[in-house]
Amino acid sequence: MHELAITKEVIRIIREEAEKNSISSVKYVSLELGGLTTYKKESLLYFFNILKKDEEALQEAVLKIIEVGGKVRCKECGAVGTVEDPILPLCKACDSSDIEITQGKDLRLRDLRGN
């Protein structure tokens, strides 16, 4: 449910980019999904495949979702690490719990192919 609104935005941006680049039939789009967002890959694909039917330029579009993991940085000692979920780990280098997220909180549109 939750992904419907954001998928509409995905489609709006694709439409804008396709027009800007004179692409009348989009074949492929890639979306970078941060591992620390609330969006689920399956739901994004589900809504995309429903919504694209109403878009002339997207009839043949395939959406590829590239999941990027979360990255964190220790505020105490600066050590960086990866993180799977928002339950932050303790810093492996200094054991501090004062950690900030530096990657994984975004959903970004990356590549567009078509003619």
């Binding site: 680049n21 395939v62 590829k64 975004d106 970004r108 549109l109 590549d111 078509g114």
Partner: peptide, 22 residues
Amino acid sequence: GPQQNGSDEKNVQIDRKVTEAN
């Protein structure tokens, strides 16, 4: 990545945050 079928196919690099308008 996906097959490049037509020679007229365009490949556009974008980097736009989906929540940018909001």
